[in-house]
């Protein structure tokens, strides 16, 4: 059994807890879902995405490199394609068309630096906000918003 996602505004005390959250979200995600990962450099966005993709693919050792330079990496999973976007190097929505955004939206999309989506930001997306916790290098504060009725 995978535990239900935690309530909003919870503190994840370790990387393992971040990965458990990712596993819970992966169990809930369906084709067409968008999950936006917001937070500063080093907040754990890629770590959460990596754990999510490994759970969705059912392969705990799957290589999930950072998509910062490639901008998007796509993974085939039993639930269809998962597209891992990193918009750090992108300055606005115009570039997204060339990155296959329209087609990707039919699958599961994970988006780091979602502020650059602009008007393309899906209204029904789940927003996961990660923040560091002053005085505790391991902990992260996470806030989930969206997916009404889907998060226990």
């Amino acid at each position: 059994m995978i535990a239900a996602p935690p309530p909003a505004g919870r503190v994840l005390r370790s990387l393992a807890e971040t990965e458990a959250l990712a596993a819970a979200l992966a169990a809930l995600a369906q084709p067409g879902d968008a999950i936006l990962l917001d937070g500063p450099l080093g907040a754990g966005k890629s770590a959460l995405a990596r754990a999510f993709i490994r759970h969705a693919a059912g392969d705990p050792a799957l290589e999930v490199p950072s998509p910062t330079f490639t901008l998007v990496q796509t993974y085939d999973t039993p639930r269809g394609p998962v597209h891992h976007y990193d918009l750090w190097r992108v300055d606005g929505p115009a570039a997204l068309a060339e990155l296959g955004w329209d087609d990707a939206a039919a699958g599961i999309t994970l988006v780091e630096w979602p502020g650059r989506l602009g008007a393309l930001r899906p209204a029904d997306a789940l927003l996961v906000t990660l923040r560091t916790v002053p005085g505790d290098d391991e902990a992260r504060r996470v806030t989930l918003s969206g997916w009404p009725g889907r998060l226990a």
């Binding site: 450099l41 290589e63 490199p65 950072s66 910062t68 330079f69």
Partner: peptide
């Protein structure tokens, strides 16, 4: 071998940004 997460040049770019 390869990187398990970020590429080394990416780490340089991100630290430079910080």
């Amino acid at each position: 071998g390869g990187t398990l997460d970020d590429a080394v040049g990416e780490a340089f770019d991100k630290v430079a940004k910080l």
